[in-house]
């Protein structure tokens, strides 16, 4: 078992936050905070300094792409895993260019989370 990671979950959908929490806690990591939009996410990030941020892209008002940009400005070392229903080459490319550490396409799969976390903790390739 690897060291438990502290994770911030950012998704406007309560269902996806529930599912993400079930999977993440199931594989032995901690959810330190949840946020429903980009603004809350930035606040929670400053407060908790999580090891990893799971970030949804399609959110009202302050969407995931803006949040990613802002997070990387606030902390260039932030480890952001994009979790999105979108998965076109353009979206993936955009997010990785903006500093995302990993990209997961919904629906969630436990194995993909494990791969993402392992990749981040050992610093390997960024695409699921």
């Amino acid at each position: 078992m690897t060291t438990p990671l502290n994770i911030l979950v950012v998704d406007d959908s309560l269902s996806m936050r529930i599912i993400a929490t079930q999977i993440i806690e199931g594989i032995g990591h901690n959810i330190v905070a949840q946020a429903e939009n980009g603004k809350e996410a930035l606040k929670a990030y400053m407060e908790h300094r999580p090891d990893i941020v799971l970030l949804d892209l399609v959110m009202p008002v302050f969407d995931g792409k803006k949040t990613l940009k802002k997070l990387m400005q606030v902390d260039p070392q932030a480890k952001v895993v994009i979790c999105s229903s979108l998965g076109s080459e353009g979206d993936i490319e955009y997010c990785l260019n903006e500093g995302a550490a990993f990209y997961l396409q919904k629906p969630y799969e436990e194995q993909a989370f494990e791969t993402a976390f392992e990749s981040i903790t050992t610093n390997t390739s960024p695409i699921a």
Binding site: S85, D91, Y94
Partner: peptide, 19 residues
């Protein structure tokens, strides 16, 4: 959220770039 996942996948299948 299910709709969001489905449409996200549709756009990929449809070959859209930045969506």
């Amino acid at each position: 959220e299910l709709l969001n996942i489905i449409l996200g996948n549709v756009l990929v299948i449809n070959g859209e770039q930045q969506t």
